[in-house]
Design a binder for these strands. Structure first.
Length: 816
DNA sequence: ATCTCCCGCCATATG
DNA sequence: CATATGGCGGGAGAT
């Protein structure tokens, strides 16, 4: 049988999309399937029309339906009388859309449970699938390959795959994220954007060479397929091809999302990176096009899995297709602890349950020798990178999963806080010295700062430095969400603008739902400024400075720019020794950090012991929980990279959850108070503040003595600016919403934060800290300012929320 | 015109 | 060798 007889039947059945969710069907009796004939059913026609009318609706609908199997199950019952429909002539061809890979994927996915019970494995027989779904085999491969890249299925033998469902997803994503980080994708992204940016200005010059060269060193981008040992067992047969493009490409694509700060990746950037950054400027247009095609294929599948969602990034260049990650947040895998170099078979296929626990991931290296990659010249590089890759062998935590999250967090907090603190101090000192005179200098010196590449255009500011920002409003909804960006980007954009106005960068605007007016940039800026102005309290002396248009602003911008440029240069130079790239940085503004914490156990306090600041430690112990968004702990490594703000030009809005206020009291702390009062920035105090902020004890900006900008900012009322996006989201999300306090706003910068502060069982009534807190949190007129302490049921551990501020920028993203 | 991306040829891998 | 896989890119539908 060469080609399953599909075409005869093809046309009509395509329309039937979801079938009622079924249980882990191992081998469904094939006959049942024929759903068809629908086109002639009134209902089906209607559906079809609707769908046709609005793709959005359609997809949404599909999802919904898929999710709740409850929806009409009946319709499936159709019988096999496809033969007689005499009107094939008119046979409305399924319209391209009906045949889309995404739709097909939905159908495919509908056949299997997301979480198949470990006990019973479900197998996928390609012949059956192709027949039942009425598609060409080729298409199924596309789907399966992507699923395989996520370890949702694995190839057993010819025609046979095993369905794993989403069980492995967490581990896979974690592994991918890790690899992505090791690959320095963030930097690559920035590099690409930068290059792109420069291109605009003139014919490319040697600049590119530089780039390329610097880039070239980072060859290791070519890694092979990342596996989860437990899953891949049977792979022997297929191993050789594991590295094949679609699979690997899919993994890389996912990695890009996982490492990017706003988890948005434009196709263009992805394509460039995936093509192989080593290809310096091969103006290979066709290659690029092909890559894009593939990415669309992958994206369609990922979209069906609801891991990503299409959006459009608007930048000055125009609208560019992009996708944003809507999948689960990936915990940073702090524990590299056990690197097991599981050479080949990590675990036998045997029990499924086991593998899940002891997931380890390893990279397979196809090269191994004899392989002749006839087609993929690029693969050759693999060989080069093997060495590097070897290191990539990873293992997943053997430890109980549950604990891991909180543990991560705790460790992370404890471990990093101190270092941060120190770093901060140093930084600030340095800063103090040099900054005053010439800010630009500052960054340079810092060893611990990491070089921030500018991301001129492009949507995503991905700087690893920023702690994995969580998107507050759940992205899921597609509503706009706040994206925490690095200020660095901002300046980047501005870099070339003579005026140095702080504009909301093109690259950075994210509007939730398709908000179209793109020109927004300028517009927004202006508006924001104006609005702000109107609303802002008189108080801010600094306000003037902050203003985008003001001189001070300009200067600071300039500084940034300059410094950045410098650092970039350095970066390039140093690139070779890539190591430092991660930990050194220069001019960054601190962006905010969103540190949602899950409540954790106190177990780790030991860690803090070494820290001198007992006070801090004590505070730290508290567990934080973020009811809202979930946890987004960042790996210590990431934290280190975080930079402290040299100049805080940023922010403006603080979003608090009602409960957060309650937390404020907790802060009461000598440090805090002192800080608040202190006008003169004291390095150490500021450092402390910084640390506290990170920890979530203090809302960012509060301490600000160190931070000039925030310092005096009066609290103004809710931010309208954010409202559009956040508003809806919040509502939806429910809890999060907030009272957003606006400190000062530039439209584009906002501090959003949600950090639950722990309230020891007895919520302390706001007392001393009040002053600070009050002030800080007060919502003018805001009704629901009430802090609701979540005194929580299980007691001790719970916490109310506090807030950390994160400067965030909006990217303009429109979704379809 | 650009964005999407389906279709299916045909090289390769596999058994 | 017959098949199973799956690069790849033309070119057409969707916008």
């Amino acid at each position: 049988l060469k080609t399953p007889l599909k075409q005869a039947a093809t046309s009509q059945l395509v329309l039937t999309e979801r079938q009622p969710d079924c249980q882990p069907l191992t081998t469904p009796p094939k006959p049942k399937e024929t759903p068809p004939a629908d086109p002639w059913t009134p209902t089906s026609n209607l559906k079809m029309l609707i769908r046709a009318a609005s793709p959005e609706i359609r997809s949404r609908e599909q999802r919904r339906q898929l999710s709740d199997s409850s929806s009409d199950v009946l319709q499936t019952k159709h019988c096999l009388q496809e033969h007689l429909l005499g009107d094939e002539y008119e046979k409305s061809q399924p319209s391209r859309k009906e045949k889309s890979l995404g739709l097909l994927c939905h159908k495919f996915l509908a056949r299997y449970p997301d979480y198949p019970s470990p006990s019973q494995k479900s197998y996928i027989c390609l012949d059956e699938v192709t027949e039942e779904l009425h598609v060409e085999r080729r298409r199924i491969y596309d789907i399966v390959n992507v699923l395989e890249s996520l370890h949702m299925v694995s190839h057993l033998a010819r025609n046979r795959y095993i369905w794993h469902g989403r069980h492995n997803l967490p581990q896979t994503l974690q592994a991918l994220k890790k690899v992505g980080e090791e690959n320095k994708y963030i930097q690559q992204i920035q590099m690409i954007k930068k290059r792109e940016y420069e291109h605009e200005f003139d014919a490319d010059s040697e600049r590119n060479e530089e780039m390329a060269s610097s880039f070239g060193s980072s060859e290791q981008s070519e890694m092979s397929f990342v596996e989860l040992p437990g899953v891949e067992f049977r792979a022997a047969s297929v191993n050789g091809r594991k590295y094949k493009s679609l699979r690997v490409m899919s993994q890389k694509f996912v990695m890009l999302f996982l490492v990017s700060t706003p988890q948005i990746v434009s196709l263009e950037v992805a394509a460039k990176i995936l093509i192989g950054e080593d290809q310096l400027e091969d103006l290979d247009k066709s290659k690029f096009k092909t890559k894009i095609r593939r990415l669309y294929d992958i994206a369609n599948v990922l979209s069906s899995l609801k891991l990503i969602e299409k959006v459009h990034v608007t930048e000055e260049r125009g609208r560019k297709p992009a996708f944003k990650w809507t999948g689960p947040k990936v915990l940073p895998n702090t524990q590299d602890t056990k690197l097991e170099a599981t050479s080949t078979t990590c675990s036998p296929p045997i029990s499924e349950s086991i593998p899940s626990k002891e997931q380890c991931s390893k990279a397979l290296f196809p090269s191994k020798g004899k392989q002749n990659f006839t087609r993929h010249s690029s693969l050759i590089k693999l060989v080069k990178s093997i060495e590097n890759d070897r290191r990539k062998i990873q293992s997943a935590p053997t430890s109980p999963v549950k604990i891991s999250a909180s543990r991560y967090l705790l460790n992370f907090l404890l471990e990093t806080s101190f270092s941060l603190f120190l770093s901060q101090m140093k930084a600030e000192e340095m800063q103090m010295k040099s900054a005053l005179s010439s800010p630009e200098v500052v960054p340079k010196a810092e060893p611990f700062q990491q070089p921030a590449l500018s991301q001129p255009l492009g949507v995503c500011p991905a700087s690893h430095s920023s702690v994995s920002p969580v998107i507050l409003p759940h992205p899921q909804s597609g509503v706009s969400y706040a994206i925490y960006l690095h200020p660095s980007q901002a300046h980047t954009v501005t870099t070339y603008s003579p005026g140095f106005m702080l504009q909301p960068l093109p690259c950075a605007n994210v509007t939730g739902i398709k908000s179209n007016n793109s020109k927004v940039l300028n517009k927004i800026t202006t508006e924001g400024g104006d609005t702000q102005r109107a609303t802002d309290e008189p108080t801010k002396p600094l306000a003037a400075e902050e203003r985008p248009d003001t001189k001070s602003e300009t200067s600071s911008q300039r500084c940034l720019k300059r410094s950045q440029a410098l650092q970039e240069n350095n970066l390039i130079k140093r690139r070779k020794s890539d190591e430092e790239s991660l930990d050194t940085s220069s001019t960054f503004f601190p962006s905010g950090y969103l540190i949602p914490l899950t409540h954790c156990t106190h177990g780790n306090k030991a860690e803090c012991s070494n820290k001198e600041k007992a006070g801090v430690c004590s505070l730290q112990h508290t567990a934080y929980s973020s009811p809202i968004t979930g946890v987004i702990p960042m790996p210590a490594s990431e934290l280190k990279t975080v930079n402290i703000p040299a100049f805080h030009i940023t922010p403006l809005n603080i979003m608090l959850s009602p409960t957060s206020i309650a937390a404020a009291p907790v802060l009461s702390n000598s440090c805090l108070n002192s800080s608040s009062t202190t006008s003169a920035p004291n390095p150490s105090s500021s450092a402390l503040n910084f640390m506290l902020q990170h920890i979530g004890l203090i809302p960012a900006g509060v301490q600000v003595p160190a931070n000039p900008v925030l310092q005096h900012v009066p609290v103004s009322s809710q931010s309208e600016n954010i409202s559009h996006s956040s508003g809806s989201t919040n509502v939806q999300e429910g809890k999060v919403s907030k009272n957003t306090l606006q400190l000062n706003s530039w439209v584009e910068w906002e501090y959003g934060a949600v950090i639950p502060l722990q309230q020891p069982s007895a919520p302390k009534e706001p007392q001393e800290p009040q002053a600070v807190t009050e002030n800080f949190f007060r919502t003018p007129g805001g009704p629901n300012t009430e802090p609701s302490l979540s005194a929580n049921s299980d007691g001790t551990q719970r916490i109310s929320q506090g807030t950390l501020c994160i400067p965030q920028r909006k990217l303009e993203v429109s979704e379809d």
